[in-house]
């Protein structure tokens, strides 16, 4: 019983923290684009435009 009295406030605090984090994420556009970020791990080196002068590499025609 004592465990419940301690754990319930903890669970509610976590719930509220989760909700606040989610609201923050939505308001900061984290959910506006659900498609592009899925491609990030497929990038070769994640260098993006910084790789201007990188040596030419194969674009991968599989």
């Amino acid at each position: 019983m004592n465990a419940i009295v301690a754990l319930i406030p903890v669970s509610i605090a976590l719930l509220i923290a989760g909700a606040i984090a989610f609201f923050w994420a939505v308001d900061h556009g984290q959910f506006d684009d659900m498609e592009t970020p899925g491609l990030l791990p497929l990038e070769d080196d994640g260098a993006g435009p910084a790789a201007h002068n990188a040596p030419p590499r194969c674009a991968g025609r599989e």
């Binding site: 491609l39 497929l42 990038e43 070769d44 993006g48 435009p49 201007h52 674009a59 025609r61």
Partner: peptide, 12 residues
């Protein structure tokens, strides 16, 4: 696109 270093586009 290649000059911008974004040739990955063709793979993605």
């Amino acid at each position: 696109i290649d000059a911008l270093g974004l040739a990955d586009y063709y793979r993605l």
